[in-house]
Design a protein around this nucleic acid. Sequence first.
DNA 1: AAGGCCTCCTGGCGGC
DNA 2: TGCCGCCAGGAGGCCT
Length: 269
Amino acid sequence: MPELPEVEVSRMGITPHVLNQVVTKVNIHNGSMRWPVPDDVYQLTGLTVTGVERRAKYLLLHCELGSTILHLGMSGNLRVVSANEPLKKHDHIEFIFANGKALRLNDPRRFGCCLWQAPGSVHKLLAKLGPEPLTDEFFAKQVYQQSRNKKVPVKQFIMNNAIVVGVGNIYANESLFKAGIDPRREAGKVSLKSFEAFIPIIKDTLAAAITQGGTTLKDFAQSDGKPGYFAQQLLVYGRKGQPCLVCKSELQEVRLGQRSTVFCGKCQK
DNA sequence: AAGGCCTCCTGGCGGC
DNA sequence: TGCCGCCAGGAGGCCT
């Protein structure tokens, strides 16, 4: 799925269509998502969406009586279409608005979720998240301190949502390559100097991906259906066996935490 | 406590 | 064409 840039692109795409709009109907066509979709979500009916927020890879639709939390999982996608347009396969949840538009969550694998958060509370799943990567709350010195004595490979460390949110498999691979850090290296053995190079690279990589509308992989599309363009500039992800774009040596692949990890054994130490 | 592994689910692709 | 195994953007939860 969508990594953070794709979620942010989705947020920007849907906001003008749903912000300050009245929800006239909530349809749960298949509530069997990662967790059962709670009936609380029907409370949105008749209310106005007062804000559309992203926290990590979660999207929150705020209204007076609470917030609807959406997560796109691995294969989720949000589209805004005319409410009379026929449903597509895997359109599981939809919010119909007074302006005649429908916001539809399509998710073939159903690893995504739709949850409810009462006003003034923070949902359990959002309570223990680390800092947003594109803010000043995410900085090298703190990450360095948190990493001391950690034996976990640095790639898994940086993908841990308690350290920083929103760094998924693609951008972890890409950022480690650009920073010249071997993904297998123990997090506790990465120097402060390396983190001082690495963290800004993560920020730049995510920011660039947002600017370009996210990474198009398989079925990802922006909420208007147009593809993102970042995939055209992936340096290592999906390039196992191909030459490193810097030194020409063959890119290697290993599995870390069950996730495909591609890197250059020569450029990344 | 930290780290490793499994799980949810559908679909696309490569190999035979 | 068809069938089979493998792989996929996430991440909570359970086990050791």
